[in-house]
């Protein structure tokens, strides 16, 4: 049994003059759920496209399941499952046929393919729609079928590119529950996302990338403690006097429009003092989360 399912060293991807992935190194361990987070255009998709042997690296080394991606692409693809960002179910085939035909690409015998397809549709709570065509399904259902399809070859590593983008909260939670089950069954999962709830909920470990480079790596709770603290105090009024008050006390803060944000290990005392001093200011304290880390490290400006 190998301990490392993905090992990237100094990975690079360039498209002409554009550097999409710049000197990225990280490892994904067996049995863990690993996240690649980053704003739009950070290089998340470019990175995992290299991992599932869709797009050849421009530099660096990349081993998946102990094999070099540039020499064993076919053998690697036989052992991984991939959910791409686009919903690319075969629109000409029913849900069940989608899985069976996909199984044939792995040379899985027809009878076995049929058995696995039914089993996986059940796992994804889609057995009732086996005879439907993809156009008849909702976005959440399509995603679940795509995940079922990715599991048809009993992969050792499941790769998901923004699995819940565009889904409503119900569909998102349902998909997360299914992924939880897979994770508890010991499947290694690699996903990209820019949904922080998703990363916090699913990922054991993650990296944040921006402009193709590694920004930070760690476990979600650790990252929050390390980069923000335990608490966040948000003050949404009386900005100037509040900020002057904080400056006096050498408390670092972040100004975001009409809001002032303070991240710290224990915010109760400070929050109480601000409330005392500025009784009209709307001052609230909450637990810091991954989104605070993400915004702090990648900035707040829009990415197009």
């Amino acid at each position: 049994m190998i301990d490392i399912v993905v090992e990237a060293k100094n990975l690079r991807k360039t498209f002409g003059g554009l550097v999409a992935v710049d000197d990225l190194s990280f490892s994904v361990m067996t049995g863990e759920c690993f996240g690649i987070l980053g704003p739009n255009g950070a290089g998340k998709t470019s990175t995992i496209k290299m991992i599932y042997a869709f797009s050849p690296p421009s530099g660096g080394t990349l081993n998946v399941l102990g094999m070099d991606i540039s020499r064993h692409a076919r053998a690697i693809k036989a052992k991984i499952g991939v959910c791409q960002q686009e919903n690319n179910l075969d629109p000409d085939l029913t849900v069940l046929k989608n899985l069976e035909v996909f199984a044939s690409y792995f040379n899985i015998p027809a009878a076995e393919a049929k058995r696995r397809s039914r089993e996986l549709l059940e796992l994804m709570a889609m057995e009732g729609r086996a005879a439907s065509k993809p156009v008849e399904l909702s976005g959440g259902m399509i995603r679940r079928v795509v995940v079922a399809r990715a599991l048809i070859n009993r992969p050792e590593l499941l790769i998901l590119d923004e699995p819940t983008t565009g889904l409503d909260p119900q569909s998102r939670h349902q998909l997360w529950e299914r992924l939880d089950v897979l994770k508890h069954n010991g499947l290694s999962i690699l996903l990209t996302t820019h949904n922080m709830d998703e990363a916090a909920r699913l990922c054991d470990r993650l990296i944040i990338v921006d402009r193709g480079r590694l920004v930070v790596e760690g476990r979600p709770p650790e990252l929050v403690r390390r980069h923000v603290g335990r608490h966040i105090i948000e003050i949404t009024d009386h900005n100037e006097p509040v900020r002057a008050f904080l400056r006096e006390r050498n408390v670092p803060f972040e100004s975001v429009g009409h809001r002032t944000l303070v991240g710290l290990e224990n915010g109760e005392e400070l929050c109480g003092r601000i409330k005392e001093r500025f009784p009209d200011a709307a001052c609230t304290m909450r637990m810091a989360n991954l989104e605070d880390v993400f915004l702090r490290l990648t900035g707040r400006e829009l990415r197009e």
Binding site: R74, Q84, N88, D90, N107
Partner: peptide, 13 residues
């Protein structure tokens, strides 16, 4: 339909 993209995630070249 992105059918080829899906096929390219399998052992098909």
């Amino acid at each position: 339909q992105k059918t080829f993209d899906a096929m390219m995630t399998t052992p098909l070249t």
